[in-house]
Write a protein that binds this DNA or RNA. Sequence first.
DNA 1: ACGCAAAAGTTCGTTATTGAACATTTTGGT
DNA 2: ACCAAAATGTTCAATAACGAACTTTTGCGT
Lengths: 181, 181
Amino acid sequence: MDRRQKKTRAAVFHAFTSLLEKKSYSNISVQEIIDAANIGRSTFYSHFETKDELLKALCTEIFEHVFSDELTQEKTHDFSTEKKDIKAEITHILYHIKDSSSYIRGILACESGEMFMRYFKAYLEKVFANELNKHKQDVPQEYMLNHMVCDFAETVRWWMGHDHYSPEEISRFFFSTTPFA
Amino acid sequence: MDRRQKKTRAAVFHAFTSLLEKKSYSNISVQEIIDAANIGRSTFYSHFETKDELLKALCTEIFEHVFSDELTQEKTHDFSTEKKDIKAEITHILYHIKDSSSYIRGILACESGEMFMRYFKAYLEKVFANELNKHKQDVPQEYMLNHMVCDFAETVRWWMGHDHYSPEEISRFFFSTTPFA
DNA sequence: ACGCAAAAGTTCGTTATTGAACATTTTGGT
DNA sequence: ACCAAAATGTTCAATAACGAACTTTTGCGT
């Protein structure tokens, strides 16, 4: 992507999340975002059609970072990495989330949080899908998957309000309270 | 000035002064500045011919801020503001210097500091020129002007290495040690 | 319900930024 | 002294950002 586009996107994302920390999603006007990002009006619209699209793009950007390793290694299907440790993987993901926490915190603070959580869970399903058959069989797999996804998503949401914990600690909390091997 | 140009200039100035805090002026390559500013090579050269020109432009930018009020009110020559208090004026300038201190600190750290001091003194001459005839007459005015200019310039240089002092305190230090009314 | 002001979008000619390619100069190691 | 790598400086066609002017929509006080 063109360097100018990257800068513009970064400026908008930064402006947007900064505003989200001060006021709620629906109370933020496009004009405010444009002013805070210090860009031209037409520039904003050449990047994002609506405020919703902006939020979607921001979430995509975040998740592409948070799940970058998981997404790439899925395609390779290398058997040497097949024995990936789910605990290590989760801790790894938590580290990436910590990188993006300044973005995420604002999003979670208001209505936009619901959209974020929905996208987040969709990604998490892919991560946890492989782990399903390895564990408890006394409940439906569908139920188990939903449990793990929601459990982890809510753990992250809680973490964003208690950021003095390390990824390792959060990982331990998560596995201590979910029926994993 | 076009918004894009402002951004580019700001990015270069910021990159440049950041680098100046880590290494000396002559050891900084144009390429490093370009990389740190995250701009295209041709963009840099469309703004600045050389590294020296960049430093000059940066100094000009700083001084236009530091002396903004003094420079504008010179033209008006309004007699109502004629009785401006030199002490208030100096304190005011010190406040503006504090605003730019993150820029100035890096510049002063190495060879570039000499060029800065030279420019700085040229501006200070204009500020102190009007005060000359009001004070001591037992030394040549030329000498007195040089004394005040160098005294103040060195005071500021010292301040940049002892930034826990307020503008008011520095102002007091300055007037306590110079033969003013 | 009305009107008005602010925000949301759209359009388009102008301008700055970009990056790649190129030639030239400087630098540092052997 | 020599070579290779890095830095310097230049050019140019492609493109993103700009901003001003415009219409449409939304929101809000009366």
